[in-house]
Amino acid sequence: MTEPSRNRPVRSFVATTVVAAVLLVAAACSSDDPVDFKDGDRSDSVDGTLGRDFAEATLQPEKPLAAAQLTAAAAIVRKRASSGGLPVKSVRVRDDTLVVRVSSTKFGADTKQRLAAIVGTGQLTVRSVSSVTPLLPTDAGPGSGTTPTGGSECADPSVSRADSAGSEVVACDDKLKEKYVLAPAVITGADVAGAEAKAPEATGLGWTVMVKWTNKGQNAFTQLTSEAAGGRLPTNRIAIVCDGRVLVAASVQSAIPGEAMISGTYTEADARLLAGTIDGGVLPTGFRIASYTEGQLGAGIEGGSSRPGPTVTG
């Protein structure tokens, strides 16, 4: 992989995010404050302040995987969960599936949805926006069992979709607010050198997400943002797409010759989830949640395994 770019200025681009459709003006971040991605566990103690309520999810791969692939997938899921702020205790290989133990105290009923959001294949692309169609508030939402008026592209956003980098695609955001026609990708996940959520005191804004690129990715991103900055809505926007769903559709104020700062109305949890998704790596196949059980530590949630496998723990 090409070495990541260094010592380049950081500029911002403003996001229409999965949590807000309001565009905010963001100040530039000084290049004297470099952002280095730290690949560590950012989750809190699951046995301390978060209480002892747990959920156990069995993740079923969309296609059969060899033992080595399952072990590698367990490590990627663990990293994504950690980066996204999900307090995971362990990810185990069990009978050709992955079994994830996570505290449900922090996110409550949203724990399952947040877990589902990180177990897609992770095919990441960055594309320019060709057109945008607002969706009606009456469109069917995830899990409704009906197809929204936006079409099949706006069905359940937790389902992975094909995202061919060399082709134009049609995709929707998680909240089903907009449907996008997107140009062929110029950047893929291989061009990402790191991503990290930054607290408000670090940027002077709310929670933001900083993205670093490889040298190849930086050149492509600078060119992409230069072209977008010269347009008008919606062609002055670029989209970050994962498994066929739009994570961010951001307006660009000027060419960005360095790291990207994505700003919006993010909470800490949302910023960490976005950063973890962008820098989560690619799974050998997507996973679905085959079972999800809630309980308390020591109250029978452990379950049995006739054929336990490797464990990735915190």
Score class of each variant (00 low, 15 high):
G120R: 11
T105V: 06
T105H: 09
R80P: 05
V102H: 00
D139Q: 07
P87M: 10
A109D: 14
V126W: 07
S130R: 15
V100P: 02
A67G: 11
T138H: 09
T111M: 04
D139E: 10
G145Y: 07
K112L: 14
A75Q: 13
R114K: 15
V88W: 02
L115S: 04
V77F: 00
P142R: 09
S130K: 15
T111V: 03
V119W: 08
A116H: 00
S82R: 01
V129M: 10
T138N: 10
S128Y: 02
T105N: 14
A81M: 00
D96C: 05
I76Y: 06
V99H: 01
T71P: 01
L136V: 13
A117K: 08
L135K: 08
K79N: 08
L124F: 14
R114H: 09
A67Y: 12
P134H: 09
T133Y: 02
S83R: 08
A74W: 01
V100W: 04
T97L: 03
Q113D: 15
D110T: 10
S103D: 06
T146N: 05
L98S: 03
D95M: 08
G145P: 05
T138W: 11
K112M: 12
G108C: 11
G120K: 11
T105M: 12
P87G: 06
S82K: 01
T121H: 09
A73D: 11
V132G: 09
T111H: 02
T125F: 09
V132R: 08
V100K: 02
S131K: 14
V100Q: 03
V100E: 01
S128H: 02
V132Y: 07
A81L: 00
G145Q: 06
G120A: 11
A109Q: 10
R78Q: 12
G145N: 05
R92D: 15
P87I: 04
V99E: 02
L98I: 05
S90G: 09
V102E: 00
G84S: 15
V91Q: 01
S103C: 07
V102T: 01
V99C: 02
P137S: 10
D95H: 10
T71E: 14
I76G: 05
G85F: 00
R78T: 07
A109R: 09
S131V: 11
L135G: 07
G141K: 13
S83D: 14
D95Y: 03
V119S: 03
A73P: 12
D110R: 15
T138D: 13
A117Y: 05
S131D: 15
A68C: 08
R101I: 04
R101Q: 13
T121I: 05
L86V: 02
R94F: 03
D96P: 03
A68V: 14
I118P: 00
R78I: 01
S144Y: 13
S104P: 02
F107E: 09
G122V: 10
R101C: 09
Q113G: 10
S130Y: 13
R127E: 03
G85I: 01
P134S: 11
P87L: 06
V132I: 14
D96H: 08
A74L: 04
S82T: 03
P87C: 06
K79F: 06
S130C: 13
P137H: 07
V126S: 05
F107G: 05
G143F: 04
K89C: 06
A109M: 06
R78D: 07
A67L: 12
D139C: 05
A117S: 15
Q123V: 13
A75P: 04
L115W: 04
I76C: 07
Q123L: 12
